[in-house]
Design a protein around this nucleic acid. Structure first.
Lengths: 179, 179
DNA sequence: GAGGACTTTCAGTAATGTTTGAAAATATGA
DNA sequence: TCATATTTTCAAACATTACTGAAAGTCCTC
């Protein structure tokens, strides 16, 4: 068993399990696998190469590659002399994180704020106990969502260095675990 | 159109849309709806009441209520003189957040760390360019995942007050937007 | 220990989400 | 312009997940 074989096995495991993890996020299994493949490929790869490596159909490869481009996680590169499009993933982990953070804020937190603010508004004059409890809960959820949104916004604008610096300061502020 | 009617409409919208949002997280639509229902109910509610309000089957109501109990988001309460079980959701928004944070860390980040660490190990001696790129990427992802795990751990242990205090200090550190 | 109130399970069904493959559209170069 | 390489679309097939309803299980109470 050579080191190269170890690596090839690890590569397959990474792609397959990254896919499984992706689906516990909101991302489809295949999209996560395509992303995994691109993330560990030193060279940009084509639709046909993805099809080959992941054993998926052209339509599937195409859709998922374009969706990743839509997320901003992957860029299209055109090699000179070639007609095909090639795809290259962002590899910097902090950049990947901020992209995903921004995208999920936009897709999940922002609509939640809208919902909560609307529900709060529509229940502000209600008299029943049930209604008052509802109004209060809507307000509290909205306040939290707005707060989370601001924190997300702030973090996504940071560079890696400052982020780590703040985080370490923050982590250090807590009492040490005395185990 | 009375204030009470406004509220009833808002309540239905909240339940239905909270469900839709839930499914963009890893949570099933119905589980999120049950959670929404419990979160806005001033009184604990029974399986039959959930079935009635959400128009779902007994089995479905039962499974989702118990799953919420499993997450720690809902508690079973027994009313004296009653044989039925009633269910009551945690309403404190910060507590809900820390419970979800901990649970998702356990389900998503921890397994990722294991995967990445394993892949890093198995590719440490490889010589090819592709293999070296893989090893590097695994290390960087692992470092980040461990870091995220620690931040999550720390936040989930905070009380709401200190969390807000730190966050405001943090938010204030960034240059103001000059628009 | 029988009867009823309630909970739990699960096989079958329904609903939803994903993938395929082939055809249509588009782009490229001679 | 045409032939061909490539991308894009999408209806139908497939896979996965969620839900139902009824039956089995549990736990009281008399």
């Amino acid at each position: 068993m050579s080191a190269q074989d170890d690596f090839l096995g690890a590569k397959d495991d990474f792609i397959s399990q990254w896919g499984a993890l992706g689906s516990s996020w909101g991302i489809s299994r295949t999209m996560a696998q395509v992303h995994a493949l691109l993330m560990i490929s030193p060279e940009p790869i084509s639709t046909d190469q993805s099809m080959e490596e992941l054993q998926i159909s052209r339509g599937n490869a195409h859709t998922n590659l374009k969706e990743l481009v839509g997320w901003g996680l992957v860029k299209i590169v055109v090699k000179k002399g070639e007609r095909k499009e090639f795809f290259e993933a962002e590899k910097d982990v902090w950049k990947i994180f901020t992209i995903v953070l921004r995208e999920r804020k936009r897709r999940e937190i922002d609509p939640a704020i809208e919902l909560l603010s609307d529900c709060s508004e529509r229940s502000k004059n209600v008299k029943s106990a049930e209604g008052k409890a509802f109004h209060k809960q809507m307000n509290e959820l909205e306040d939290f969502a707005v707060f989370a949104s601001q924190v997300g916004e702030t973090i996504s604008k940071l560079k890696y260095g400052p982020a780590i610096k703040y985080a370490n300061k923050f982590l250090g502020l807590l009492p040490k675990d005395k185990s």
